Amino acid sequence: MEAADLLQVLDRKQPRRLRVIENLLRGRRTVSTLYWGQRYHLLPLLDANKHLDHGALTAPAQQLAASGLVTLDSEADQLLLTPTGQQRQAGAYYQPQTSADWLNLDLGAARQRLLLAVQVTSQYAHSTSRYYPLATDLVTRRVVRQWFHLEKGPQLAAALLTAMVQSLQQLPVQTAEVMTDLLTGYQHPGLTVSQVASEQQQTAWEIQLRQRDGITQIARDARQADHPLHGLLHPLWRSPVTRSAQATLYAVEQGGSLEQVAAQRHVKANTVKEHLLEAAILSPVATFPYDRLLPQRVRADFAAALNADIDSWQFAQLPEDLRTRYDFFYFRLYAIWRGRGMMDDGATHS
């Protein structure tokens, strides 16, 4: 991620911690990272760059500060856009249009399956049996092999072409071009992200955002049962909540107390709380049992003590009697509830 890319995930009013952004991109699923990722409206970028080196955003941040585009508080590890930075941010930069689904799709697996399936189908259509398949993991090769043996036939290539064209036509022209440039097929070795970035005069990160849009749009369309990639991509849609957290949430929904659920699942009570906070952040508001875990009397107690901007709330600054009555779990759950636009009339407010 270059300085120009980092600029796009910053804000003029909300100081954002560099370490949170880094951990989010690297897929560090701590409650703190998820919570602040939600507060920053950057959760779709969870696990978007799992190979990002620790500290890799420091140099881009310093470059932005030296250019007068951000103020950098090194001690607090926070960045804030300057007016000049806000103007620069408003310039030409790709704005993804499918990011609402990124958490619900295993994009890494979808990318590998799609690229290999296109290559195999293209070579098959030209009766080519000797070629070097793309380097993928064993699971991808096995799944694509199974898919191909089920789908192969004289109409496969045409059906796949038609389906992909229909998907790419729903995206900006440049994004569709990026997607096709990155594909590998018969007499088409495919370009690398760096090569496409150079051709398009954009950053590699911007090209990856375009590719994520393309893959997600194809996967969206592949949810249709008659789509040629249905069997390959449809299984990759999933809940962003981990299975362990889902199991904890289910046990709570069945009526168990936090202590009972911890004993039942053979985990610590704090682990139960972490699972529930993860589910509260990543689940649709309507599906989480806020009324059970955060009843009105608890909300009223916190509401009476917390009136400032949510980002400034600190558990340690609560009145002592409130900290004695409720531990950090309820404080954070209330912040999540309020942060998602909920109020005591039961409606969401933007």
Rank of each mutant, 00 (worst) to 15 (best):
residue 94 Y to S: 01
residue 152 K to I: 14
residue 253 E to V: 12
residue 64 L to D: 03
residue 299 R to T: 08
residue 218 I to V: 14
residue 57 L to F: 00
residue 191 L to D: 11
residue 289 P to Q: 08
residue 329 F to N: 03
residue 152 K to Q: 15
residue 200 Q to P: 00
residue 57 L to M: 06
residue 290 Y to D: 02
residue 53 D to E: 15
residue 342 M to W: 04
residue 112 Q to A: 11
residue 52 L to N: 06
residue 125 A to G: 02
residue 103 L to M: 10
residue 71 T to E: 14
residue 255 G to N: 07
residue 111 R to S: 00
residue 61 A to Q: 05
residue 232 L to G: 00
residue 70 V to K: 02
residue 125 A to Q: 01
residue 173 V to F: 02
residue 173 V to D: 10
residue 93 Y to K: 05
residue 4 A to S: 15
residue 201 Q to C: 08
residue 15 P to L: 03
residue 329 F to E: 07
residue 43 L to K: 04
residue 53 D to F: 06
residue 243 R to Y: 11
residue 105 L to W: 01
residue 267 V to P: 04
residue 30 T to G: 14
residue 346 G to Q: 11
residue 115 L to P: 00
residue 230 H to D: 12
residue 42 L to R: 05
residue 37 G to F: 02
residue 210 R to I: 00
residue 134 L to H: 06
residue 148 F to T: 12
residue 315 F to L: 04
residue 292 R to H: 10
residue 151 E to I: 06
residue 272 V to N: 05
residue 123 Q to L: 01
residue 57 L to I: 05
residue 293 L to V: 10
residue 188 H to W: 15
residue 184 T to N: 12
residue 331 F to S: 04
residue 254 Q to H: 13
residue 147 W to L: 09
residue 287 T to K: 11
residue 200 Q to H: 07
residue 197 A to Y: 02
residue 140 T to Q: 09
residue 64 L to H: 05
residue 127 S to P: 01
residue 152 K to V: 14
residue 200 Q to T: 09
residue 310 I to M: 05
residue 66 A to T: 11
residue 338 R to E: 07
residue 269 A to K: 08
residue 347 A to L: 15
residue 155 Q to E: 15
residue 274 E to P: 01
residue 89 Q to M: 10
residue 325 R to W: 04
residue 214 G to H: 00
residue 279 A to E: 09
residue 296 Q to L: 13
residue 144 V to S: 02
residue 84 T to N: 14
residue 8 Q to L: 13
residue 309 D to L: 05
residue 347 A to I: 12
residue 83 P to M: 09
residue 88 R to G: 05
residue 274 E to G: 07
residue 106 D to T: 10
residue 102 W to L: 03
residue 301 D to R: 12
residue 337 W to M: 01
residue 109 A to Y: 06
residue 26 R to E: 05
residue 338 R to Q: 15
residue 150 L to I: 12
residue 278 E to D: 11
residue 41 H to D: 13
residue 72 L to S: 04
residue 9 V to H: 03
residue 74 S to Y: 05
residue 316 A to P: 00
residue 36 W to G: 01
residue 342 M to K: 05
residue 162 T to W: 03
residue 270 N to V: 14
residue 339 G to T: 08
residue 343 M to W: 12
residue 11 D to R: 05
residue 325 R to F: 03
residue 138 L to F: 13
residue 95 Q to V: 09
residue 174 Q to S: 13
residue 213 D to L: 06
residue 166 Q to S: 13
residue 110 A to F: 07
residue 184 T to Q: 12
residue 100 A to N: 09
residue 157 A to S: 13
residue 27 G to W: 01
residue 52 L to C: 05
residue 312 S to V: 12
residue 312 S to L: 12
residue 292 R to G: 07
